[in-house]
Design a protein around this nucleic acid. Structure first.
Length: 638
RNA sequence: GCCGAUGUAGCUCAAUUGGCAGAGCAACGGAUUUGUAAUCCGUAGGUUUGGGGUUCGAUUCCCCACAUCGGCUCCA
């Protein structure tokens, strides 16, 4: 007699041991059909796992996250099987499920080509149609090693050898293909129908650059074809929104081969957006009680020795330059400079909190292969700030910084956050007492904002705990921009102090924080989030006045000048072109307001606006419209 | 940095097996004076990323460099 308890608390009894699949069938045909695996007493198991004792069972369907992961994992095996059938010389290594899909790494004598990918995908469909059973087998470690050695799968042997000798190893067999795997897997290959191979790339064995480079084939897999299509559509959508493409189309910025990789050139229209971002940033920081600093882009290398960057950050720093018998370093960070300003005079406990912000441009050496549009560059501007305070002020300061962070992200249209709190790692500086106190302060600040957060235990930097905030864009992608970090290290290294109430010297607490992170990267994210259709307050051109014929030029120019006088970024298209042509052109440039001017408008000192959605608002008096646009821009409406 | 791919006019792309480098859009000139997503005609535009090599001859084949793309790696 076996009793199985289901997630809803109900129990089911069976006379003899049953498989997970049989339990699913006993509940309903629909469930049995959707089932891919089970979770028995918290452990993931196959559908044909035999339950021979009482326990809790949840049926995992392909619609669930866990089910999808199993499908992706099984699809990676399906791909490996296809590869082995087509190219027996290829050796299999590992093939896990990843976000939205899976990959499998192979060692093969030649690179896989796009044609190979098509062939592999075709073969995968064939194997799916063959509907082969996927069977779990178990054996002792040494037997498994011998088996894979016989098959010539050296990587598999290496993996298995790392497992304890007395442990039982599970294998999954489908057709002639056998793979070491913990499982679970779908019971038959016919469960796998909605997949597509996406790309092939190099990847090191065990992720170590000293090891042999393997070939990784990436694919995506879903529960059904509809979901697959939706995902492929999303990929297309993302490609359309690619900031590199939009940056070129809208003439916002460029990267230039002759200048070198990872160096960003902001064009006039991109600079307008940046100015709008910076203007908001400044306004918000003044309101939040910050002062501003401007500090140099380079300084004597000694400074970087003192800060310790030379020891632990050297790989990301450009080489120093030699000037007047001294070495100078272009800065990869702003913090040492802010500390120098702090050190330029004595400080009292009454000075705190000190909040200093700077749009600080930094230069970091990134591997050439890592460069990517505006997202990974070698020179960028941080919206950096450093707060100096006393221990007991930490919580208030962090709370204030979180306020500013959420306000800033919200203003740019990001309302969904994932918050991470990273705590003390094994190797760290600072006393346990201060770590505990600071970590608690961070946690309290997060709780004050009623934010859910994930604690990354031991994930903090060696110098202090931190809070990271990730935003979600309109395609559901997550980006980490904001970071708030405590630093118990730099104040020590630079020996910065303040005079306390007791007349003695004390060490201040230092907080680093950036809200947007890198302006370049944030701009790229905004560009993709809005697909180039910036909200009015950010748009490089907020309004474009369009003439019907040359006769309307005077009024059009006047409208443009009135808009500019009201503080709007306005232009006029006075060209001798048809109105349809102008509308098309400026719509493609994603200008939020197009103001058409013809005889009627000129007579009545009016305009006919067309908004971002393409709607013609009809004849409107200019004065009222200007008021409306100014309000829209000033309130930074999204 | 590593693996693979790519690099042709401002942009998007063509160019049999190595044989005079082309189109659309944009630019410029002219005509047209136009009412909500492309008016017509014409002109000009190139050291085919840079350097070297093979060849009678290289956009094409080879080598090196640079940049870009997809990944790996890194990410204080």
């Amino acid at each position: 007699m076996v009793k199985v308890t289901l997630p809803d608390g109900t129990g089911r009894e069976f006379d003899m041991p049953v498989t997970v699949g049989e339990v699913a069938r006993s509940i309903g045909a629909g469930l049995a059909k959707a089932a891919v695996a089970g979770r028995f007493d918290g452990r993931l198991v196959d559908l044909d796992y035999v339950i021979d004792c009482n326990g809790d069972l949840a049926i995992i369907t392909m619609q669930s996250d866990a089910g999808l992961e199993i499908i992706r994992h099984s699809t990676s095996h399906l791909m490996a099987q296809a590869v082995k059938e087509l190219y027996p010389a290829a050796q299999v290594t590992i093939g896990p499920a990843v976000e939205n899909g899976f990959y499998y790494d192979f060692d093969f004598e030649r690179p896989f080509t796009p044609d190979d990918l098509s062939a592999i995908e075709e073969r995968m469909h064939l194997i799916s149609e063959r509907d082969e059973p996927v069977v779990r087998r178990e054996m002792k470690r040494d037997a498994a090693v011998a088996l894979f050695a016989e098959m010539g799968e050296h990587y598999k042997c290496e993996i298995i050898n790392a497992i304890d000798a007395d442990q039982t190893i599970s294998l999954y067999v489908q057709g002639t293909f056998m793979d070491l795997c913990r499982g679970p897997h779908v019971p038959r290959t016919s469960y796998l129908k909605a997949f597509k191979l996406l790309s092939v790339a190099g990847a090191y064995w065990r992720g170590d650059a000293r090891n042999k480079q393997l070939q990784r084939i990436y694919g995506t897999a879903w529960a059904d074809v509809k979901a697959l299509k939706a995902y492929l559509h999303l990929l297309e959508e993302a490609e359309k929104r690619d900031h590199r493409r939009l940056g070129k189309e809208l003439d916002l910025f460029s990267l230039q081969e002759s200048a070198g990789g990872g160096l960003v050139f902001w064009h006039p229209l991109g600079a307008r957006v940046r100015l709008a971002i910076e203007a908001y940033w400044r306004e918000a920081h003044i309101q939040a009680g910050y002062e501003f600093l401007y500090t140099p882009h380079m300084a004597n290398l000694e400074l970087w020795r003192t800060s310790g960057h030379l020891d632990f950050y050297r790989d990301s720093m450009f080489n120093p330059m030699h000037v007047d018998e001294q070495d100078y370093q272009i800065r990869p960070m702003n913090c040492p400079f802010h500390i120098l300003v702090y050190q330029s005079r004595m400080h009292s406990h009454r000075d705190f909190p000190i909040r200093w912000a700077e749009l600080g441009t930094v230069y970091r050496y990134e591997l050439s292969g890592a460069l990517h549009g505006l997202f990974r560059v070698r020179g960028f501007t941080q919206d950096d700030a450093h707060v100096f305070c006393r221990e007991e002020q930490i919580e208030d300061e962090i709370t204030g910084i979180l306020d500013l962070t959420l306000a800033t992200l919200g203003t740019f249209g990001f309302k969904q956050y994932d918050v991470f709190l990273s705590t003390r790692p094994e190797k760290s500086v600072g006393s346990t007492a201060i770590w505990d106190k600071a970590t608690q302060a961070l946690m309290n600040a997060i709780k004050k904002h009623n934010l859910d957060f994930v604690e990354d235990k031991g994930g903090g930097a060696f110098y202090g705990p931190k809070i990271d905030v990730k935003i979600t864009d309109c395609l559901g992608r997550k980006w980490q921009c904001s970071t708030i970090q405590l630093d118990f290290n730099l104040p020590e290294r630079f020996d910065i102090t303040y005079i306390g109430e007791d007349g003695g010297k004390h060490r201040p607490i230092m907080i680093h924080r950036a809200l947007m992170g890198s302006l370049e990267r944030f701009f790229g994210i905004l560009l993709e989030h809005y697909a180039g259709r910036f909200p009015m307050w950010l748009a490089p051109v907020q309004a474009m006045v369009l003439t019907i014929t040359d006769a309307h030029r005077p009024w059009a120019a006047e409208v443009r000048d009135r808009l500019r006088a009201a503080g709007l970024r306005a232009e006029a298209d006075l060209r001798n072109e048809k109105i349809g042509y102008k509308i098309r052109e400026h719509t493609l440039k994603k200008i939020p307001w197009l103001l058409v001017v013809g005889d009627r408008e000129q007579e009545q000192r009016a305009v006919s606006p067309r908004d971002a959605s393409g709607k013609d608002l009809g004849l409107l008096p200019l004065d009222g419209l200007i008021e409306k646009l100014v309000l829209q821009a000033r309130e930074r409406r999204i």
